[in-house]
């Protein structure tokens, strides 16, 4: 059996028509790592939300910018690092979305960041002097799943 590469990465242009390709890339890697279908779906959705936020907020729909998605697999840890060179985005400024309020104000913001935190075990943001952002999404493989894998 070929050993699984610890780190794989992919760069796509900042366009929503690349989201499907990103989801396929992440789901294959997560499945290979031994996650349940439910966990695979959760990781894929979290990555989609992160990339969608980059396209909308960091790049403000500019279609020719780059998003780099790197997957690092180590022991029981599956980390997806998503990098962009767009506008800084401070998710900590976002409160938990109030659905009732959004409903009456036609607002939809904040759902993606809230979902990412719900779906992953750890979500961290790193900003570099003005024009580089990285979000790290981490999911741990449960002991039960890693035993099955062995």
């Amino acid at each position: 059996m070929v050993a699984m590469a610890k780190k794989i990465s992919k760069t796509v242009l900042s366009r929503t028509d690349h989201l499907l390709e990103v989801r396929d890339f992440v789901s294959e890697a997560a499945r290979q790592f031994g996650f349940s279908e439910e966990d695979v779906a959760n990781i894929v959705l979290a990555v989609d939300e992160a990339c969608t936020n980059i396209i909308k907020h960091a790049y403000q729909y500019a279609p020719d910018k780059e998003i780099n998605i790197a997957i690092v697999r180590n022991n029981g840890t599956f980390e997806v690092k998503i990098k962009d060179n767009g506008k800084n985005f401070n998710p900590d400024a976002l409160k938990r979305p109030d659905l009732q309020r959004n409903l009456t104000h036609h607002r939809r913001g904040g759902l993606g960041v809230y979902l990412m935190r719900k779906l992953m075990d750890k979500v961290e943001y790193n900003f570099e002097a003005g024009h580089s952002n990285e979000v790290s999404l981490v999911k741990y493989l449960s002991k039960k799943q890693s035993l099955i894998k062995k």
Binding site: L19, D48, T52, N102, L103, T104, H106, R108, L111, G112
Partner: peptide, 16 residues
Amino acid sequence: SYISSAGLGVFMAYIE
């Protein structure tokens, strides 16, 4: 087969 928050946002935009 799949929905993200962008999809859910559409329902929020029109329900009222």
